[in-house]
Amino acid sequence: MSSIEIKNVSKSYGGVHANTNISMSIPSGKITGLIGPNGSGKTTLFNSVVGYHPIDSGSIQFKGKEISKLRVQEIARLGMLRTFQQTRIYSKMDCVRNMLISIPHRTMQWHEMLKPFTPELTEKAEHLLEFVGLYQKRHLISGDLSFGQQKLLEFAMALMNDPEILLLDEPTAGINPTLINGLIDRLLRANSEFGITLFVIEHNMRVIMNLAESIYCLAHGEMLAHGTSDEIQNDKRVIDAYLGAH
């Protein structure tokens, strides 16, 4: 069963065709990768899916429901979350508070907004911070953490929201190479233990080959190739696109 179904999506900025007739299907419960050279339209596609900007044509469905006309918050409340390429956290609050406010807002009623946070939520926040290795620093102001740690915090915040699907925009960019293996492991566990569908943009080939079962490759805003990691690795068009022969 597919979680996200993208059909013939096009998006251009002025004269630049960022996405042309893109179609893809993200299977539920799996990890799907999206690769492509710089400027190939990966982040534009992400932004279209999460409702950040309207698309020019085509259709995007989430669990069978058309979402291409919905706004960012409405899509997030359906259970589809994204993380940002330039990490975004609430930089003046400590880590625990960053986590607490990331609880699901799907069913939030007025009177619930005026309630304090329960000890159970704090416990859940601490568990997840431990999961990403930030437990010790949980009472520090998040803006003072290193870039890599902020990235881990953003990932933990996304998990706190209990999403059905998580769109990760370059989760390992800027992270210390020795920490990357740990992050890959955590992404795999988020998928297998928490049952979260992952859709990942990644530049690091080693990372994406280890993570994703199915990989899409974009180039110049168009779909270049689709296949398993082995197929993609040996696809001449993909290699050409990355080496600039295209």
């Binding site: 918050q73 409340r77 994204r82 975004r88 609430y90 406010i101 990331s102 807002h105 915040m157």
Partner: peptide
């Protein structure tokens, strides 16, 4: 701290 992030988180 970041209104765009808050929107993306469904607040």
């Amino acid at each position: 701290d970041d209104e765009e992030k808050a929107e993306a988180m469904g607040i």
